[in-house]
């Protein structure tokens, strides 16, 4: 039998929470905004962290640039260099930005900011106006470079019933030492900052 718990969700309630936007455009609200409008909003509400041109201030995230770096030693993963879907910008900025005042932006404002971020990433020209109608047509440059988890085939060698137990190598040498020797923050002697980053 059916569980008699919970109650029907009202349409207004679903609407209030159902703010996600999918790559195919499902979930986009009515609205539109231009690069120019987006630039103003961005400079006022976003640039203090992400930089005037999305280049990032200090350790705050970089949002633009980085094209051609993905195979390098220091990949810069931005909207233009890495993200597959335009919808993600809309969805994420609307749900979580500005950091500290989430979900305060109106649909037209989000459209405008997304237009500006696309412009900063060389995806649209400076007179672009983004709207619900033209939205799904805007593809991002790196979209084709994502593929589904294939570890079970490409890493098949890691399934290995009998790993070596004795005399597995002739000689062992140390190839790398910890870069940050004294990381325990409360022990007083802060070491160098390492190369990596927690994302």
């Amino acid at each position: 039998d059916a569980v008699k718990l919970g109650r029907p969700a009202l349409p207004e309630e679903i609407k209030a929470w159902d703010i996600d936007v999918r790559p195919d455009g499902l979930g986009l609200p009515e609205g539109k905004g231009s690069v120019a409008q987006g630039e103003e909003l961005f400079q006022n509400q976003c640039a203090m962290c992400h930089g005037e041109f999305g280049e990032g201030v200090g350790r705050w995230p970089v949002l633009a640039g980085g094209q051609g770096t993905l195979k390098s030693e220091r990949p810069e993963k931005t909207i233009g260099s890495f993200w597959p879907d335009t919808s993600t910008i809309f969805d994420y900025v609307h749900r979580a930005m500005p950091f500290g005042a989430a979900q305060t932006l109106q649909p037209d404002e989000v459209y405008a900011i997304v237009a500006y971020l696309l412009y900063l990433n060389d995806v649209v020209p400076d007179d672009y106006v983004l709207s619900k109608e033209n939205f799904p047509k805007v593809a991002l440059p790196n979209q084709a470079n994502f593929y589904d988890d294939d570890r079970e085939t490409t890493e098949k060698a890691f399934w290995n019933a009998n790993p070596c137990m004795k005399d597995c190598k002739p000689k062992v040498e140390i190839t790398s030492h910890a870069r940050v020797l004294d990381v325990t923050p409360d022990a007083g002697k802060q070491g160098d900052k390492p190369a990596g980053a927690v994302e």
Binding site: R7, L10, A16
Partner: peptide, 11 residues
């Protein structure tokens, strides 16, 4: 157990 008549303010 009953359905709400008006939207829940906590939603």
């Amino acid at each position: 157990a009953a359905a709400e008549a008006t939207p829940d303010p906590d939603i």
